[in-house]
Simulated assay, not measured.
Amino acid sequence: MNYNDPLEPAMIITKVLTKSDVVGNVVLPKAEVMSVLTRMNVNDQDLENGVEVQVHDLLEDDLYTVTLKLSGIDKPKYYFGSGWSTMKHSLDVGEGYVLKLYWNQWENKFVVLNFQYSLIPLMIPV
């Protein structure tokens, strides 16, 4: 995929990291993850067991494998488990860091959006 082309906003997950995200596992925004899940070939049962996904840092050309998981039925939480520790240390993130990930459905991986990009404009009929 050419990342100079506009990206689809619905495939972006944005999270301002908290202290607990940095110390433990990063909890991802539910609505944004659910939007991305429409393009991933996984279901809640898969996510309860954990699904390994790749995360590509294009600037450093690093590829991480992390486990995307779901916990809780009444109040579901999506988070990165195994692999997050390696990724956060390599990216040198801390509290307040804005983590932006793009789901590239054609390559079946997340891309860290730590570069200049543009979004596909929304076409709203008038």
Rank of each mutant, 00 (worst) to 15 (best):
D57N: 10
S82C: 11
V23I: 14
P125H: 13
L47S: 03
W103Y: 13
F80S: 00
V93C: 10
V98F: 03
M123I: 04
G24E: 11
Q105F: 08
V98Y: 06
M87S: 02
L47N: 05
N108M: 14
Y3V: 02
V53P: 04
Q105K: 10
D5I: 08
W84L: 14
K19D: 11
A10K: 06
K15D: 07
L58R: 12
M11D: 06
W103P: 06
L28F: 07
P125M: 13
M34Q: 15
N43R: 00
W84Q: 14
V36E: 03
K88A: 04
E8I: 12
K109L: 09
V16E: 14
K19V: 12
L59A: 02
W106F: 03
L122R: 13
S82V: 11
Q45K: 08
P121M: 10
G94K: 14
Y3D: 12
S90V: 00
Y78D: 02
P121Q: 14
G72T: 02
L99D: 00
H56G: 01
T86S: 15
L58D: 04
L70P: 02
E107P: 01
F110V: 12
V112F: 00
P76K: 06
G72L: 11
G24Q: 13
T65H: 14
K15H: 14
D21Y: 13
G81C: 03
A31F: 08
M123R: 01
V26E: 02
I120P: 06
D21G: 00
N41F: 04
N104D: 03
E95Q: 15
L7S: 05
T38D: 06
Y78G: 05
A10Q: 09
S82L: 12
L58I: 14
F80M: 08
V42G: 01
P125E: 15
Q116P: 02
L122F: 15
L47F: 10
K69D: 14
E60V: 01
E107F: 09
G24S: 09
L119T: 02
D44M: 03
N43I: 01
E32N: 04
L122P: 07
Y3W: 09
N104K: 06
E107H: 12
V98E: 03
S85E: 07
K30C: 13
N43C: 02
V126A: 11
E32F: 07
Y3Q: 12
L28K: 05
N4F: 11
G81T: 04
N25I: 06
P121E: 08
Y117N: 01
D57T: 01
V36L: 13
Y64N: 11
K109W: 00
D61G: 03
D21C: 12
H89D: 07
D46W: 11
D62W: 10
S82D: 11
L91N: 07
N2M: 05
I124A: 02
K15Y: 13
S71P: 02
V51K: 08
V126T: 15
G94F: 11
L119Y: 07
V66D: 07
P121R: 00
L63P: 03
T18V: 08
D21A: 01
G50P: 04
N104M: 02
I120A: 03
E60A: 00
K75I: 11
L7H: 04
E52D: 15
D92K: 06
L101N: 00
D5F: 14
T38G: 03
N104T: 07
L91I: 10
M123V: 06
Y64F: 14
M1S: 12
L59I: 07
W84Y: 12
V126K: 10
